[in-house]
């Protein structure tokens, strides 16, 4: 580096106002804002009730958010490509009822039932991907349609009835098994979700596939001209999301102690909420799964913190609504970052 270019770099650095500095920082690390919100909520709720930070309370928090946090991984992938998935909940219910019904009613071996259930979820995600890439429909419309289709299939197949855990093989219920780690109590499901975050986070940040996901979401035409196989990337994203929803279905059975077709009706909006609060841009190409995990935990923190503080849960709804709007406004501001 020459002295002149150093001076130029120095000059450009000095021109930044404090607000611009924050803008640049958040631009480079979109997970910083949800982290800040989580730290603030933790301080407030632990001040309101000392038991909030107790290991059993925090373990409960993780168990409560595990399924939504898992679904939000798939949702993050799709939102990163500038899409949206409204069929999250319906794919999960379809996968869950397939697993449970095969095992309980058709007496299929537990492991095989799980594999078929996950395969159904991958197929459902793949179908979304085909409709988006080959038929060129907007993701919103595709998944709005498949939301109804998959829900209907799940209800028709299962007859709309729940299947309790005593009718299911141990392997399917295994995700609800609790494991003590020091003073904390994790379930197998929670550990699976955390591992999944690690795997997807690695794939997004350390592999060429991850780069291509961001590129397709940010500017699909430029990505195509640069040689990125955009359609194949999109298909892989929708299929991977399906795989993740299939795992979430298994975790949900363990968590709820039953496979119920009415179990996770709010999953669509909850998963989008976690992604948005987590700092991933709805316009694609910016964000990541670390933020999403923080976003899911923030929602759980409000639920837990308000109930420990003895406050009406409606305040949670209000707070989350405000957070969503703040998060998207912040994203709009960060997107205007300039040199």
């Amino acid at each position: 580096m020459t002295t002149t270019s150093n001076a130029a770099a120095e000059f450009s650095r000095r021109r930044l106002s404090p607000a611009q500095r924050i803008q640049h920082l958040l631009h480079a690390h979109p997970w910083l804002s949800p982290l800040l919100i989580l730290v603030l909520t933790t301080i407030v709720f632990s001040a309101l009730n000392g038991r909030y930070l107790a290991p059993n309370a925090q373990s409960l928090l993780l168990q409560q958010v595990a399924v939504v946090a898992c679904l939000a991984i798939g949702q993050t992938l799709i939102i990163l490509t500038a899409g949206i998935d409204l069929s999250v909940g319906s794919i999960t219910i379809l996968s869950m009822m397939t697993m449970a019904s095969l095992a309980a009613n058709s007496k299929v071996n537990g492991g095989l039932a799980i594999l078929i259930g996950i395969a159904v979820a991958v197929g459902a995600g793949f179908l979304n991907g085909i409709l988006v890439t080959k038929v060129n429909l907007p993701p919103f419309i595709v998944t709005l349609g498949t939301l109804s289709i998959f829900t209907a299939i799940a209800l028709l197949y299962s007859g709309g009835a729940s299947i309790q855990e005593d009718r299911l093989p141990d392997l399917i219920n295994w995700t609800g098994t609790s494991i003590a780690l020091g003073p904390f109590r994790f379930t197998v499901g929670v550990i699976m979700v955390l591992l999944l975050y690690g795997v997807v986070g690695f794939a997004l940040t350390q592999t060429a596939w991850g780069r291509h996901v961001f590129a397709v979401g940010d500017d699909p035409e430029s990505a195509r001209l640069s040689g990125v196989p955009t359609k194949r990337v999109l298909l892989s994203v929708y299929s991977a999301a399906g795989l993740i929803y299939g795992l979430a279905a298994w975790i949900q059975i363990g968590r709820a102690g039953a496979a119920s077709p009415n179990g996770i009706v709010d999953a669509n909006l909850d998963s989008i909420t976690a992604v948005v609060i987590g700092g991933t841009s709805l316009f694609g190409g910016r964000g990541g799964v670390i933020g999403t995990l923080l976003g899911a935990v923030i929602v759980g923190a409000f639920t837990l913190g308000l109930s420990l503080a003895g406050v009406d849960q409606q305040w949670r709804l209000l707070a989350i609504g405000v957070l969503i709007i703040v998060a998207v406004s912040l994203d709009q501001w960060i997107r205007r970052v300039k040199a």
């Binding site: 060429a208 780069r211 291509h212 961001f214 590129a215 979401g217 940010d218 500017d219 035409e221 430029s222 990505a223 001209l225 640069s226 040689g227 990125v228 190409g285 910016r286």
Partner: peptide
């Protein structure tokens, strides 16, 4: 080099140079 500049705004310079021919 196309008129509309086939670069990805959100990715860094090195990622753009190596887009679709990443090295492992």
């Amino acid at each position: 080099v196309y008129q509309q500049l086939a670069v990805i705004p959100a990715l860094d310079i090195a990622s753009n140079l190596y887009l679709a021919r990443e090295e492992r």
